[in-house]
């Protein structure tokens, strides 16, 4: 298992490199630079700045310097926030983003799987149809619309929950952003789970379990659950990616101090170092999550373990 994890990590490195390279050059191709403000800077100061950040060197040399730094674990300086390096800025925003994303991840899985099981067991009943309707809502309403609706309803009309901000970091501040972030994933996961569960419940080994006299709880929990989770697992990798990109928008709307906000500002300000640093960081997180998903596969299916 350890060798497998190691090998997977090795194969992920070229992917990471390609992503960095593409981002690096696409960013430089975009018009404007970090020091192009509304009012042009005196030429001398700009030349000094460019020299300080190596922007006066040929592009390919800048690229070589950057890759060299990254290989040593240095994500470089931020171009627009003078006092912080990229790594420092990420580490400031990181706890917020991780709490938000992690909570949304867990909520998506728990509620998605539960809704899927209920849908499969109570097939074509009113609860199944209600869930299907909710799923449809979750899939069609984009998060930038869902967020203001929920803010209006629960934050202002009912005044149950704060409209935004991190406040004291208590649970109340998390409820709405996590709901917005996880709703579409609960929807997708519940559909996947329902379909898989219905198929598994019709399989021969479930018939055997019934013939042994087992009640429906042990049949679902011991025999049907694990094989039904397979398609959900394969969705979790991409879901992690969607959660991170979704968190950019959600952090912005709810005014949360996570990485997302820095990332958007950095992209608008052409803060090359910050954008690239965040991209690398996100990619690493997604790669790690995908690795965990693969290891979970092995837990779900002993045949994978044997290979």
């Amino acid at each position: 298992m350890l060798t497998y994890a190691f090998k997977r990590t090795l194969t992920a490195l070229p992917v990471l490199w390609i992503a960095i390279t593409v981002c690096f050059f696409v960013l430089r191709l975009a018009p404007g630079g970090p020091f192009d403000g509304e009012r042009p800077m005196p030429a001398g100061i700009k030349a000094n700045l460019d020299a300080h950040y190596n922007l006066d060197k040929p592009l390919i040399q800048q690229y070589a310097i950057y890759i060299g730094d990254v290989l040593q674990g240095d994500l470089g300086p931020s171009f627009t926030t003078e006092d912080f390096s990229v790594a420092e800025q990420i580490s400031i925003g990181l706890p917020y983003t991780l709490i938000l994303g992690g909570a949304a991840f867990v909520v998506s899985i728990v509620f998605g799987v539960l809704a899927g099981i209920i849908g499969a067991l109570k097939r074509n009943s009113w609860s199944d149809h209600t869930l299907a309707a909710l799923v449809l809502l979750g899939l069609v309403i984009p998060n930038f619309l869902m967020a203001p609706i929920l803010q209006l309803l629960f934050g202002i009309e009912l005044a149950w929950l704060p409209v935004g901000g991190w406040g004291d970091g208590s649970l109340r501040y998390l409820v709405l952003p996590v709901a917005v972030l996880s709703f579409p994933h609960i929807a997708r996961i519940s559909r996947l789970m329902r379909g898989a569960m219905i198929e598994v419940l019709a399989s021969n080994f479930i018939r055997t379990a019934r013939s042994k006299g087992l009640g429906s709880t042990p049949i679902v929990m011991r025999h049907a659950l694990r094989p039904s989770l397979m398609p959900v697992m394969s969705y979790l990798g991409p879901a992690a990616g969607y959660l991170l990109t979704g968190s950019l928008v959600v952090e912005q709307i709810f005014g949360l101090p996570g990485i997302g906000r820095y990332f958007i500002n950095a992209a608008l300000n052409r803060d090359y170092g910050m954008v690239l640093g965040t991209v690398i960081f996100y990619m690493v997180i997604i790669l790690i999550l995908n690795l965990i998903v693969d290891l979970l596969y092995a837990w779900l299916d002993p045949r994978v373990r044997a290979q």
């Binding site: 399989s203 006299g213 011991r222 025999h223 094989p227």
Partner: peptide, 25 residues
């Protein structure tokens, strides 16, 4: 009540023994 009988007083075996056993147990 039927569950008290199934697997205890009457039990059953099937054609395809691979798919009839739970693969992950």
């Amino acid at each position: 009540k039927l569950n008290k009988i199934r697997g205890s007083s009457i039990s059953m075996i099937f054609q395809d023994p691979l798919t009839s056993l739970t693969p992950h147990m």
